[in-house]
Design a protein around this nucleic acid. Sequence first.
DNA 1: GAAGTGGTGGACAGCGTTGTCACCGAGGAG
DNA 2: CTCCTCGGTGACAACGCTGTCCACCACTTC
Lengths: 376, 376
Amino acid sequence: MPSRLCPGVVSFETARDIDITRSRVCDSATMTTLSPDGAAGARKVRRATMNDVARLAGVSIKTVSRVVNDEAGVHPATAERVLAAIDQLGFRRNLSARNLRRGSSTGTVGLVLEDVGNPFYSGVTRAVEEISRLRGRQVITGSSDEDPVRERELALEFCSRRVDGLLIVPAGLQHGYLVPEMRAGTPVVFLDRPAGDVVADTVLVDNVGGTTEAVLHLASFGHRRIAFLGDAPDIFTANERLRGYREGCARAGIGFHESLVVMGPHDEVSVREALHRLRRGADPATAVVTGNNRITVHALRALAGAASRPALVGFDDFELADLLSPPVSVIAHDASALGKAAADLLYARLDGDGSPPRRVVLPVRLVARGSGEVRA
Amino acid sequence: MPSRLCPGVVSFETARDIDITRSRVCDSATMTTLSPDGAAGARKVRRATMNDVARLAGVSIKTVSRVVNDEAGVHPATAERVLAAIDQLGFRRNLSARNLRRGSSTGTVGLVLEDVGNPFYSGVTRAVEEISRLRGRQVITGSSDEDPVRERELALEFCSRRVDGLLIVPAGLQHGYLVPEMRAGTPVVFLDRPAGDVVADTVLVDNVGGTTEAVLHLASFGHRRIAFLGDAPDIFTANERLRGYREGCARAGIGFHESLVVMGPHDEVSVREALHRLRRGADPATAVVTGNNRITVHALRALAGAASRPALVGFDDFELADLLSPPVSVIAHDASALGKAAADLLYARLDGDGSPPRRVVLPVRLVARGSGEVRA
DNA sequence: GAAGTGGTGGACAGCGTTGTCACCGAGGAG
DNA sequence: CTCCTCGGTGACAACGCTGTCCACCACTTC
């Protein structure tokens, strides 16, 4: 057993540094049955084609095609021979060649997002996959890591693969590169953020409304010094949420104070420092709105040991928010609803919907759990 | 603003029921610039081919190919004309046709897992994607939802698409269907669980060792009535962890009691009931080992309001475990390490590694945070 | 003037499929 | 016996691209 007992209480670790050199390796002797080829390995072997099957079965290639495609008009005995040959050779129809010849769709859609590893986007991915499954299509994903160049590479690569449609969480603001693709008939739907300079279907969440609501909610508990910790303002959602914050301040009649706003990019340290700064001095912040779930989590960690806590409302819901103490109030929106709405829009286009581009804004909900319901 | 203020404190909700019919829709009039085609839409248009480009540029198709592929020996002026034509027609090389002709790889690998939406697997996905990116390959994913039929469909579909390799989190125990594919030279690596009846590369985590360690850890704090809540025993990892639990009980000298084991499938209700049952009576459990992160979370929710809590160690780490009170002790293993190890193995095969199939067992780590360090 | 030489471009085949059309032999109608 | 139908089958081209090979046009060199 390679790991040892840890006697003490240690802080959170992601176990990212597990030492792979200490991994155990068993050889095949301890394993069972059914080796695919004595000594296995990826020897580069030409795959059997219909031609090979045809030769072996003593029929023409066309007959093989008929059998493979379940076309009528093949003598049962012939079909039998063909199937036996297929089995013997391990033949599997080459979909690329098929699609090429038929000029039909490739049965794939491309999904470009910021990071598949982020739970929010993996929820989106799952929803897209689910809808695509019903439509008989496969999903190819790629993570842009918020890099416009990478986004472009991915999207165009997908186009070269002739995806039937493209779902994109935009990383940048320039999407002119997609115009030829769209003109060529590839529908594109933008998710979570709009494209900068292209008119296309877009699915967003109500960033402004949600943040406004968060501020009003906090103000209704008597808070007048409400801070906002947001992501880098060149990210669409961050900027929108900042707008919502301003709007909320205005509507609550508490004024907008530059000094209460700290935009990112944020990491654990910067959030900690920002909170520290905001909460000292003569007129400290008594409440905080955090601009996304990463920032919320950083904030919670920074406040973990603190004697007093500001009231807190976070944008984005996250698992276990209800089990923390106090439970965290959030502006919730649903990754799978976002993915579903976008996929539905895409498939409507693929079904021939030629109406003008739509912009769908999904509602958000304030989920009050406790952290935001504290009197000033 | 479609949503309203929620005055009270409500319990956790996933916002899954957001009403899409209340979504706002803006028409394109409110949008900006650069419409791809006056009235857009996915009119099915034949995409420009090299032939079209050649005609327009007044050169042969081969010359276009040369330009597109940056081959030497094209007069700059000719290249210029070709590039202009490409631009005008929005031509983009068809990768399927190219790969078909060249007999080269499709530059894709297939990843079949249980659910992309699950944070653990999305971590795996991200790692696989990252490695694949370095190798210039795209990843196609599919979720089997623990259904062997679906897994098989996905894997074979991927093979039809001629993926260069396959990474599979097995849903069932029969994988003979992959033998022809493996024999045809498609390398397959199994992740997280072994295949039932095929010898192939496999990457696992140390399920037995981890659970044993959890039990010994709890026993070291004086617990002698340690319960185990595990997933359905036909799932490999669940069964292995049960084995580890037995082993731990044996080594701790506390005996194995059938009545302290409750295997799944589990949902929130069944976990709640199981815990309730285990903790009453004359000789109640004073400690619990939970068999995966879902079960751990269910257990935490069930215990949230309770007056007294059993000591708890969960298999699988999860975000925020350190911020709960008490912080949750876990057996941690790393999704991205798993994905990376599997991808590395796959690419080694693609690079020609013909050695016998390997089984890699990644170590796990006990991360003691508090919930498990409670005296009996 | 004949024979190389290097730079430029095209004709053609073929990757693995499928759509079109034509063929062949058996059987039924006239 | 001829004509026609019809089930079963195959030859062939083509999908979009690239590898091979060859043609052509200056030029240079003997």
